[in-house]
C-alpha cells in the first residue's frame, strides 16, 4: 500500500485526485482487517504511519469472522520510484522503470526473496519509499497474491497488493 499523503482527510479537495487508489486501498484494508485481532503496520516514517492509521480507521473490520489461520495481519506501506517522468516529484531517472518493473513483478508473485534483495541505495536514489521493510519478510511463504492497483498517476509507482501467507 503506498503511503500517499493525499489519502489523508486534511488534504482533501473538492475533487479526489486519488479516488481509484483510495477505493482499492479501502477494500484491501477491509479485507485485511476481516477477522484479525489487530493489524501490524510497517511504515518507514511518521507520515506513512499516519496514512496507514487513517486507512485502518476508515475500514469496517468484521471482527466476529473467523479465518483458517491465526497469524498477524500486516500492512506494509511502500511505493516504487517517484522519478518516473519529467513531471514526477523527483523528475525523471531513466533507471526508475526497470526498478519498478522488477518490484511490481515481485509484489504480484509474492517473490519475497526478490523483494528482500532490493538495493537500498538504488531505492533511495529513485525515491522509492518503504521498500527496506521487505528485507524483514524473509521466510514468509506467500500462498496467494492479488494485485488491486498498479499505476503511476503522478509519476510515482503505486501498488495495492493482497498476500495470503502460510502460517
Amino acid at each position: 500500500m503506498p503511503p500517499v499523503p493525499a489519502l489523508l482527510p486534511e488534504h482533501a479537495g473538492r475533487v479526489d485526485p486519488v479516488a481509484d487508489l483510495r477505493a482499492a486501498a479501502g477494500a484491501a484494508v477491509a479485507w485485511l482487517c476481516e477477522g484479525a485481532d489487530g493489524v501490524r503496520v510497517v511504515a518507514a516514517d511518521g507520515l506513512a504511519e499516519r496514512v496507514a492509521r487513517h486507512l485502518l480507521g476508515s475500514s469496517t473490520p468484521h471482527r466476529a469472522g473467523t479465518r483458517a489461520r491465526a497469524d498477524d495481519a500486516v500492512l506494509v506501506m511502500a511505493n516504487g520510484s517517484a522519478r518516473r517522468s519529467e513531471k514526477a516529484p523527483g523528475h525523471l531517472d531513466e533507471r526508475a522503470h526497470a526498478f519498478d518493473e522488477a518490484l511490481g513483478a515481485a509484489l504480484a508473485t509474492g517473490d519475497v526473496t526478490a523483494l528482500a534483495g532490493i538495493d537500498p541505495v538504488l531505492a533511495a536514489e529513485l525515491w522509492a519509499t518503504g521498500t527496506e521493510a521487505f528485507a524483514a519478510l524473509g521466510g514468509l511463504v506467500v500462498e496467494e497474491s492479488q494485485v488491486d492497483y498498479d499505476d503511476d498517476p503522478f509519476g510515482v509507482a503505486y501498488w495495492v497488493v493482497r498476500w495470503t501467507c502460510a502460517s
Partner: peptide, 12 residues
C-alpha cells in the same frame, strides 16, 4: 472556508 478544488502537489 472552501477546500481546494483538487490538491495533489507535494502530496503524491
Amino acid at each position: 472556508r472552501r477546500r481546494p478544488q483538487r490538491a495533489i502537489r507535494g502530496l503524491q
